[in-house]
Write a protein that binds this DNA or RNA. Structure first.
Length: 856
RNA sequence: GCGGGCGUGAUGGAACUGGUAGACAUAUCGGACUUAAAAUCCGUGGGCCGUAAGGCCGUGGGGGUUCAAAUCCCCCCGCCCGCACCA
């Protein structure tokens, strides 16, 4: 008797698919197309079990769509530019390109044994000059179309290393290498005009029916459309060049509760005061310390500097409000100035209490206990849709919602000539300049006579120079002896290249389009793009819910405008699925100083009594379900898993148990169980293959009915990303089949169908079963089974009977029994008679085909 | 700090659109097979009371809507993701 042996059968079937070209994307016949894409990986060096889960999900869809008669495009590539390659070069010497391409080779080598149905012929890395050269062409077209411009923007500046830091390189406000306090410094940078598309990007979310609601909500909040009032406070005494402070507020209804004006340290007025007053300068310098992230700014202690200036309230010119410079006000949102209403904003309240400013409520709750903030309570911030009692309205009812009051306030102020209603968006333009080497060079030159000049397309790609070093901080392109020297494309005179490279988000904002024609000598081939786009199913992590997806949506529009994508591609991802992570327990012991010492799972033996180190028997603390991280050593290497159990086991396990959108915890016991199950299926098939072909049996109809139910349930599961539920059904059907005494013909049909239903998840095992049962051709190319509707209908249904909402009994009735009939049968049920105790029911609810509830 | 999400037996989870909570799997325990072990197969498998029939409790905590709530609403707790230069 043979045994399930993935080590021999997996390579065998991978070779068979390769030779048949099963997964090459082709435009054959009049089949519909299907484009399935998983977010491409960063080539960190090794694949991660999380990748296995992500790509297995995509592969299930791809194989299922192939089996249901589609031309399938399922490509793979690498997001290869970015900081880690430079960091590796800094730490270990070597060159980022060598590091990254070695990593890519390793990862491809690790991915191939997993048997993904990928069209490897379309593979590329974003660091290939063929790719980034076309990206430069796109940039030039965007520039021509007015979608790119330059302006000043703040960066994290390390004053010791004299270099720009990424947000993740700023730790507690200090540079990660130098330890110096980071400053916010302005640089001239390139920007994409994504904010011009704010309204459109927001409105179009409505059409994305197959995107998770949470992602659409996050994007909508990020774009942040707000209706507010823009107006000016007049300064009591005009200083040089400033007689007013323009503010923007989304709560003009609280204007009568204003108690101070706050301006950003980068506000022109603050700049002006800074120039003449060392104390102001000192405060502004302090306020500019720390990182640039919104998080850092919001979490920092709220500090203000009283400028001594005052403004007049627009509705009461005798009312003067102090002007503070405050560290939490951002210059690039709104006008860089606000008015503070401490009663209805906790941040303003904290600020007011700190600096002894007035607190005036403008509204209170309709009822209930309420401690006003002026009496020591918290700021009162109800939802804008809630009706409140107004103590200081302008012209609206004493009882009105925030929304009603805001609208009324805007109308009132417009009538009085105090400002005007404006719609603003939180979304800012996309800064794409990076002062780093390992990225796509921005294809422009700086000419003393002509200024900033775009490169000529025939000079593309502008390739990165190979001879660079990373021994000193800063951008190697800046200090390269010759690379910068070039001639001006316009006047032919000497000029200097731009040394900024592009944000890696640019690379990942159009790779999905490039996959449709990866070797084209233009960014896209319109005919191929028109055929394969859009991505029918996009799969990736929730961490990309905002930036990557929003940037890609912008890029698709920009590519349409510049003639690189058809109109229908403006929303490039028809359906989106965000999968969860693979987690693993952390094993930790303590050293003599009580510091944690982490251990790899393979060094730990887990028993029901606890976990111990295999080598020493020392007891180990188990922290369950933590995100895998190298430093915590709670990682499992897919390569080891494949070696131990085979690819199918790994694929089966990452899909079973947990719903795909949720995290799944990798456990050795679970992997072993998955492996045992696949072995059982193989043995079952083997047993059936060895039956006498003419063997009769009993229960054929029952087995086949169950088979058709399984076809229905698994198909539904695969189509709705319910892979775990589909696998549960496959377990159940395997149990049914293994107990069946049906004829050989019925069992053979059942096991071949089982193999087909399993084939998207465990393709190698499925091929093997198919071949051993004498199936024709490859199972990967066989048509997906279809459930026979006639086999699915049942004559009777079992209904639960509830008494007062609790299940007490059940009855079996004809499938099409009327409400009256069901009620009659229910009332004759023992449990009901007992509960009624001779009385009449208060109410009987019959939901046909569902439930009966008797209220007594 | 702000925005978004998640929380169900010892464990991973199932439950269609508000309609039998715990499918399927893992651990455990009991049994069969075996000289023995592994593998395999059969059974057990939320808690409490009860010989049983049956009853009570139970989906992070508290409250609410409903004939009926894991599912809808409000408050709280814990964890996760994002916050524009990590990818």
């Amino acid at each position: 008797m043979s045994r399930y042996d993935p080590a021999t059968l997996e390579p065998k079937w991978q070779k068979a698919w390769d030779e048949a070209g099963t997964f090459l994307a082709t435009r054959t016949g009049d089949k519909p197309k299907y484009y399935v894409l998983e977010m491409f990986p960063y080539p960190s060096g090794r694949i991660h079990i999380g990748h296995v889960r992500n790509y297995t999900m995509g592969d299930v869809i791809a194989r299922y769509k192939l089996a249901t008669g589609h031309n399938v495009l399922h490509p793979m590539g690498f997001d290869a530019f970015g900081m880690p390659a430079e960091n590796a070069a800094m730490e270990n010497g070597g060159h980022p390109a060598d590091w990254i391409y070695q990593n890519i080779d390793t990862m491809v080598e690790q991915m191939k044994p997993l048997g993904f149905g990928l069209d490897w012929s379309r593979m590329f890395a974003t660091s290939d000059p063929e790719y980034y050269g076309q990206q430069q062409a796109l940039f030039l077209d965007f520039l021509k179309a007015g979608l790119v411009y330059r302006k000043n923007a703040v960066v994290n500046w390390d004053p010791v290393d004299m270099t720009v830091l990424a947000n993740e390189q700023v730790i507690d406000g200090r540079g990660w290498r130098s330890g110096a306090e980071v400053e916010r410094r302005e640089l001239t940078q390139w920007f994409f005009r994504i904010s011009d598309f704010s309204e459109e990007l927001l409105d179009a979310l409505d059409g994305l029916d197959d995107w998770p609601a949470k992602v659409k909500l996050m994007q909508a909040n990020w774009i942040g459309k707000s209706r507010g009032l823009q107006f000016a406070f007049g300064l009591t005494e005009a200083t040089t060049g400033h007689d007013r402070v323009e503010v923007y507020t989304t709560r003009p209804d609280t204007l009568l509760g204003a108690s101070f004006i706050g301006i950003s340290p980068d506000h022109p007025l603050a700049r002006e005061l800074e120039a003449h007053d060392p104390k102001v300068a000192e405060f502004c310098a302090m306020a500019r310390r720390g990182g640039t992230t919104e998080e850092a700014i919001e979490k920092a202690e709220k500090l203000g500097y009283d400028t001594g200036l005052t403004c007049r309230h627009p509705f009461d010119t005798s009312w003067e409000l102090p002007v503070y410079i405050a560290n939490f006000i951002l210059m690039d949102y709104g006008t860089g100035a606000i008015f503070g209403c401490p009663a209805h904003d906790q941040r303003d309240l904290d600020f007011a209490r700190k600096y002894g400013l007035d607190v005036v409520s403008t509204f209170v709750p309709l009822s209930g206990d309420h401690v006003k903030p002026e009496d020591g309570g918290d700021a009162y911030v109800p939802p804008k849709t809630e009706k409140v009692h107004w103590t200081l309205p302008f012209n609206w009812d004493a009882e009105a919602t925030g929304t009603e009051a805001i609208d009324a306030a805007i109308r009132f102020c417009e009538e009085k000539g105090v400002g005007h209603g404006v719609t603003k968006f939180r979304l800012r333009d996309w800064g794409l300049s990076r002062q780093r080497y390992w990225g796509c060079p921005i294809p422009v030159v700086h000419c003393d006579t002509c200024g900033v000049v775009p490169e000529k397309k025939e000079n593309l790609p502008i390739e990165l120079p190979r001879d660079v070093s990373f021994d000193v901080p800063g951008n190697p392109l800046d200090r390269h002896p010759t690379w910068r020297q070039t001639t001006c494309p316009k006047c032919g005179g000497a000029a200097l290249r731009e040394t900024d490279t592009m944000d890696t988000f640019v690379d990942s904002s159009w790779y999905f389009a490039r996959f449709t024609a990866p070797r084209a000598d233009t960014p896209t081939d319109m005919e191929e793009a028109a055929y394969w786009m859009n991505v029918d199913q996009y799969i990736g992590g929730i961490e990309h819910a905002i930036l990557h997806l929003l940037y890609s949506r912008f890029f698709a529009r920009a590519m349409h405008i510049t003639g690189h994508l058809p109109e229908k591609c403006k929303e490039p991802f028809d359906a989106l699925f965000t999968q969860g992570m693979v987690t693993h327990a952390i094993y930790v012991t303590r050293d003599e100083n009580d510091r944690p010492v982490y251990h790899f799972p393979e060094d730990v033996e887990v028993h029901e009594s606890g976990a111990r180190l295999g080598a020493t028997g020392q007891e180990v603390e188990v922290i369950p379900s933590a995100k895998m991280s190298k430093s915590k050593k709670n990682v499992v290497d897919p390569v080891n898993i494949i070696k131990t159990y085979g690819a199918d086991t790994a694929r089966w396990f990452v899909l079973s148990d947990s719903p795909p959108e949720r995290d799944v915890e990798w456990t050795a016991a679970g992997a072993e169980a998955a492996n045992r199950h696949l072995g059982r299926v193989w043995s079952l098939s083997d047993r059936i293959a060895q039956m006498d072909p003419g063997a009769a049996g009993e229960g054929d109809a029952d087995l086949l009915r169950e088979m058709h139910r399984t076809i229905r349930d698994v198909t539904l599961g695969v189509e709705s990303f319910g892979f775990n539920a589909a696998i549960a059904k496959l377990y159940a059907f395997t149990n049914t089949l293994s107990r069946s005494k049906a004829s050989h013909a019925a069992q053979r049909e059942a096991v071949m169908t089982l193999a087909q239903l399993m084939s998207p998840m465990t393709p190698h095992l499925a091929e093997d079963i198919w071949a051993r049962q004498g199936g024709t051709g490859l199972i990967a190319e066989a048509a997906w089974p279809v459930a026979d509707e006639a086999m699915l209908v049942e004559d009777t249904v079992t209904l639960p009977i509830q008494i007062n909402g609790k299940r007490r009994s059940e009855i079996t009735v004809a499938r099409d029994a009327s409400k009256e009939e069901v009620e009659k049968i229910a009332m004759a049920d023992d449990a009901v008679i007992r509960a009624l105790d001779g009385g009449a029911p208060k109410k009987v609810i019959v939901v046909p085909g569902r439930i009966v509830n008797v209220v007594v």
